[in-house]
């Protein structure tokens, strides 16, 4: 690790101002990803501003339904929260499918959104990587491709976003609240992540010094019967090859509401808007599910080493929707 100064921030505005002004500074919260990357010198901050004690650790009911989750809530606490387990089971399951209890006890909700990719070429400082060092090239694209993106990727970068939680948040239309040098603002999770073609070195639209303070999940009755399914190379404690967060409502045999988001396939949690559009009003049958999944994946741009993710994602989506509709019967 590069030597750094550790500062326990006194208040939010000075923390934000400090990180905004000093390019070598970084916020520290749970640290599970930051410390990991600092050890390998993938990240080399010279000042760590500890904000874990400053951000809210509360989960509050929103008037009119929904939840406001403080950015400092641990992943464990969020997954175990009764309101989440009842109202948004896909979110609880997504969190529980990620990492381990030990890590989830440390990791915060805010930090979970901002995890860096697990692309092994990004994590190896001796390899060219546009995300780590803009302009050096992408060594992953012609390298080991198993974990890489099939959707939304660019020639500049084919890395995937590793979060499970964010996939459920995307399906739930969650909105991130931030405070930055320019004040407070809100950013929908589905607009939080930047396309790699716009410069893969910046994962999100957040400005330097901008801190996630909370995330709000709107009321969504459809989410009460929802699920998260993670497909991976080991039964537990592994990142997703493909994951799916899904919820579906059926009235008179036709799809009256549906939410689908995919993980492990893109630089961001991939809200499957095409599939959702295709399904709406269609009969809730295996054929419709399959057609919708294929429509979503028509835009896939797989590499030889990750082409299997296309049928895998299709089958997982179909299987999830099938299971959810069978359950509802």
């Amino acid at each position: 690790m590069k030597p750094f100064t550790y500062q326990r921030a006194g208040d939010m505005s000075s923390a934000v101002a400090t990180v905004a002004e000093r390019p070598e500074a970084s916020f520290l919260a749970g640290g599970t990803n930051l410390v990991d990357l600092m050890k390998m010198e993938v990240l080399t901050p010279e000042l760590l501003v500890d904000v874990r004690h400053l951000v809210s650790h509360q989960i509050q009911d929103l008037p009119g339904g929904g939840l406001r989750i403080g950015a400092g809530v641990s992943n464990s606490e969020l997954a175990a929260d009764r309101r989440v387990r009842r109202g948004y089971p896909m979110l609880s399951q997504a969190i529980l499918a990620g990492a381990s209890y030990q890590l989830r006890n440390l990791a915060t909700v805010g930090g979970n959104f901002l995890q860096r990719t697990r692309c092994m070429y990004f994590r190896d400082v001796t390899m060219p990587c546009n995300k780590r060092e803009p302009g050096t090239g992408c060594s992953a694209r012609d390298g080991q491709q198993r974990d890489l993106a099939i959707l939304g990727a660019s020639k500049l970068c084919v890395a995937t976003h590793p979060s499970d939680m964010a996939v459920a948040m995307a399906a739930l239309d969650a909105v991130v609240h931030t405070v930055g040098p320019a004040g407070e603002r809100t950013v929908p999770v589905n607009r939080l992540y930047r396309s790699p073609s716009d410069g893969p070195e910046r994962d999100t639209v957040l400005d330097r010094g901008e801190l996630i303070t909370a995330v709000e999940i709107p009321a969504a009755p459809i989410a009460a019967r929802s699920r998260y399914r993670k497909v991976r190379d080991r039964a537990s404690y592994a990142f997703a090859l493909v994951s799916v967060a899904a919820a579906i409502e059926v009235g008179d045999g036709a799809v009256s509401g549906v939410r689908i988001a995919l993980g492990g396939v893109a630089h961001r949690p991939w809200r499957a808007t095409t599939a959702e559009r295709e399904l709406f009003g269609m009969p809730a049958t295996e054929e419709s599910f399959r057609a919708a999944a294929e429509a979503e994946l028509a835009a896939a741009w797989p590499l030889p080493g990750n082409a299997f993710k296309v049928p895998l994602a299709r089958n997982t989506v179909v299987g999830m929707l099938r299971a959810l509709t069978e359950e509802a019967r």
């Binding site: 550790y6 599970t32 410390v35 500890d50 006890n105």
Partner: peptide
């Protein structure tokens, strides 16, 4: 156990 909860002690900074 870090303040009562299991945690990976390799990923937390002592100063924090």
């Amino acid at each position: 156990l870090l303040d009562g909860r299991r945690a990976n002690s390799c990923l937390v900074l002592a100063v924090a």
